[in-house]
Computed example of a mutant assay.
Amino acid sequence: MLIRCWGSRGSIPVSGKECLKYGGDTTCVEIRAISGDVIIIDAGTGIRKLGLSLSKESSLKLNFIFTHAHWDHLMGFPFFEPLYNKETEIIVFRCPFPEHYAEDMINRLMTPPHFPVRYSDLKANISFRDGCPEAFKIGSVLVEPIPLSHPNNGCGYRFSENGKTFVFLTDNELGCVHNGGLKLDDYVEFSKNADLLFHDAEYTPEEYKHCIEWGHSTYTDALELGMRAGVKKLGLFHLNRERTDDEMDSIVEKCRKIVSEKGLEMDCFGVGYNSEFKL
């Protein structure tokens, strides 16, 4: 598996000299499988740059999975260039919820007055397949969903291929169990021994006091999860819209110090634009 991040910012895209290192685009992650399949997780604003990159390739067969339907994870979809190419084939898996949720979600995005181009006018060949709540396969990758602890619900995922595992848990509040969500112990078990974990780390502990039940975690809770699960690499994700590069670097250093003091070898880092990992 090759994992590449195209956007890791939370809630709304940002720009400016203070966020050049980690980037300002909202959630979009690309996975390249050994089987050649391309898996796209979420369609935040980062998907625009992914689309420009993919359009340079001759054959576009893509697979989409969504974590949930909040705006910052969908707002880039209409600007995904391959949608306007008749040579593009897209399979959208019915996640995070079964039945016709994914179809309705995408259709609403591209219905006037929200956007001038209708879903029915797209040139790409788009089809839908069943996915959540059961595990399913995309080429050589096994995809296992888990409910997120987040307002309006959603799904996190464990991607496994050739003995390697990537776990993606953004918009997951470890300090509060939302309706339909799970407890910390459940996410520890789900992430057990993962080679790579991206987890929501939007808040500092001080900030979190004012944001309980908003659906996001502190970096300290994400760190605890990673250490208890014994993951090899922990990527802090869903970066706060106000967080500067320097502030994020400071958080990463604090996390690394805690890991070192506990005698662990887990690598901790902030996930930024164009971060790339080969498993």
Rank of each mutant, 00 (worst) to 15 (best):
K56D: 01
T220F: 02
G139V: 05
H70L: 03
T165A: 14
F237H: 09
R4W: 06
N152L: 05
Y101Q: 02
S149L: 05
L109F: 10
M227E: 14
L60M: 10
V177F: 00
E134Y: 15
P133Q: 02
I146N: 01
R129L: 15
H150G: 01
H199S: 07
E242C: 04
G226N: 02
G76T: 08
T111G: 06
E265W: 02
D72E: 13
P116L: 03
S59P: 00
P78R: 06
S260T: 12
E202A: 11
F168D: 01
R158G: 03
P133H: 13
I212Q: 14
L142I: 00
N179P: 00
T220W: 02
C211K: 13
E99C: 10
K254T: 04
R32W: 02
A33P: 07
N63A: 05
V143P: 03
K233F: 05
S191V: 04
N179Y: 06
T27D: 12
F80Q: 08
S127Y: 08
A229I: 03
H73I: 00
S53I: 03
C19G: 06
C268R: 04
I251D: 02
F190G: 03
A43T: 12
G24T: 07
S260H: 11
T220H: 05
T27M: 10
L122Y: 11
L234I: 12
L184T: 06
T244H: 15
D72P: 05
Y203V: 06
G270N: 01
I138A: 04
D37G: 12
R9W: 12
E206H: 13
K209L: 14
S260M: 09
E242L: 10
G230M: 11
H178P: 09
I65L: 15
S275C: 04
G180L: 01
F198K: 01
P82D: 13
K164P: 04
I91E: 09
